[in-house]
Design a protein around this nucleic acid. Structure first.
Lengths: 225, 225
DNA sequence: TCAAAAGTGTTAGATTTACACCCATGA
DNA sequence: TCATGGGTGTAAATCTAACACTTTTGA
C-alpha cells in the first residue's frame, strides 16, 4: 500500500459508551470502576479501542455487544473528545456514543462480569477523565432525540402503562409534566396502541398496558412524541 | 513516559472545516479542489491533520486561522467520521467542525492562495470522500443553533437591515418566511437595536440599519431568535 | 410618474397550559 | 371502608399563520 501521509502523527482512538436504562422511574447509566491503569478504580464509562479494520460505529457496536450481549441497540454518536491530556496514560482521542436499553434485557451476570452497575443520572459520581462531560452531552442529545424518535420504547418493556411512559419522559427531561396533558398527547399518537391487557402490579385498580406499533409509526407522517 | 496501551493500533486524525458564509442572499460554503493525493483535483473541504500536542478544538482553530486569517471564529464540532475506507489513501478518522464568517472579512487573496471559493449550499458538487455528508450534518446543526444562539450576527456585517437578516434566516433554513411575522418577532428582541443609520444601497427609499447588542443579549433571559 | 424595496396590524386557528374530581380494587 | 394509583374534560391564554396596502425616493 502506498503511504500518503507518512509525515503525520497517529493517535490512539477509543470509543466510550453511555448506556441509558430506565428502572424504578429513574433514568440510569451503566458505569463501573475502571479495571486498568491509568485511573484504576475510578468510576468510568465502558469503552474500548478502535481497531484498524472497523469503523467508529462498528467499534461502538462491538463494545456495546461485549458489555450487554445485545446486538442492534439504538445507538448514536455524541461526539469526539480530544483534549491533549484527557487520558493520563498517553494521548487518546475518544468518540462517545450513547445507547438505550431495556434494563430487564440485561443480565445480572453481565453486570457482575464487567463490574458495572446502573447509577441514577442524578447521582453520577465524579468520573475518570472527561466522562462526566460525555454523560452530560449524551443526556442532552437523548432529550432532543426522544422528542422526535421512538426510542422511549426501547427503554421500556414491550408492554407498558401510560404512567410508566410518563415517568420515563419526566426522568429524561428532569421535570414533571401534567398527567392529563401528557395523556392527551399520547391519545393523538395512533402508534401507541392500547392492548386489552391490564397490569395489576402497580395499583389495585390496574392500568391498561400499551404497546408501540412500529408499522403504524412508520406509516405516520406527523411528528411525534 | 510509561506506555499503557502499547498493544493498540493508532490512526491518523484530521479535522475538516465547513465554513459558512452569507453573500447575495445565499448561504455559502468555502470549498476547493483538493491539492494533494489521493483525490487530487476533487472538490473538498479544507482540513488538516491533528498534531499530538494540540486538542481537536485547537487543531480546528489552527486550521481555520490558516485558511481565513481570523482567530476566534464561532466554531462547533459536527462529529467524528470514521468509516474504514473513507480516505482512499490510508485510514484517517476525521472530526468535522463548522464555523461561520462574515464574507467581507475574508480577503480575496486568501481565497486565491488556498484555492478555495464560496459555493452556494444549493449547488454543492459531489465531493471527496464523505464531505457531502459532513456538510449536510453541519447545516442541520447550524439550523438548530441559529435559533438559540446569536450566530446570525457573525454572518452579517456589523450593521445590517432587517431584510438582510430575514434573507439569512431563509437561506439557512431553506424556506421563506412572512415578512411581517418575521419583523414582529425581531421587534420583541431588544438586543437587535435600530441605529439611526439608513442603508441606501438596496432601495431608493433606504432601509434602517440594525446592530446586535451583545450586552443586552447577555442580560436577556428570554430565548431567542 | 413609476418601479422597487421598506415598512406596518389584525384576525382566525392551533397549541399549550392550568386545573380537580371520580373510579376500581385489594387489603 | 379506605388508601392507592388510574383515568378523564374544559376553559383561558399564548403562539402561529395568513394576509395587502402605503411609503419613500432615485431614475
Amino acid at each position: 500500500m502506498t503511504t500518503y501521509y507518512k509525515e503525520f502523527q497517529k493517535v490512539l482512538l477509543s470509543v466510550d459508551c453511555i448506556i441509558f436504562g430506565f428502572e424504578q422511574n429513574k433514568l440510569k447509566v451503566l458505569i463501573g470502576k475502571r479495571q486498568m491503569d491509568p485511573g484504576r478504580g475510578e468510576w468510568s464509562l465502558y469503552g474500548g479501542f478502535v481497531r484498524n479494520d472497523e469503523s467508529l460505529d462498528e467499534a461502538a457496536k462491538r463494545t456495546l455487544y461485549e458489555l450487554t450481549g445485545i446486538r442492534n441497540l439504538y445507538m448514536s454518536q455524541v461526539g469526539a473528545f480530544g483534549e491533549v491530556s484527557r487520558d493520563p496514560g498517553e494521548r487518546v482521542v475518544s468518540v462517545a456514543y450513547y445507547a438505550v436499553i431495556n434494563v430487564a434485557d440485561y443480565s445480572n451476570r453481565l453486570l457482575r462480569d464487567h463490574g458495572v452497575e446502573w447509577v441514577d443520572i442524578q447521582e453520577i459520581p465524579a468520573m475518570y477523565s472527561d466522562h462526566n462531560e460525555m454523560i452530560r452531552k449524551a443526556r442532552k442529545l437523548l432529550q432532543q432525540k426522544i422528542k422526535i424518535e421512538p426510542i422511549s420504547f426501547q427503554l421500556l418493556p414491550k408492554l407498558f402503562t401510560l404512567t410508566q411512559l410518563q415517568r420515563l419522559y419526566e426522568a429524561v427531561n428532569g421535570e414533571e409534566v401534567d398527567k392529563r396533558n401528557f395523556r392527551k398527547r399520547i391519545k393523538d399518537m395512533d402508534f401507541i396502541e392500547n392492548t386489552e391487557l391490564i397490569d395489576k402490579t402497580t395499583s389495585r385498580r390496574g392500568a391498561s398496558l400499551y404497546r408501540f406499533n412500529k408499522k403504524m409509526y412508520d406509516a405516520d407522517t406527523t411528528f411525534k412524541l
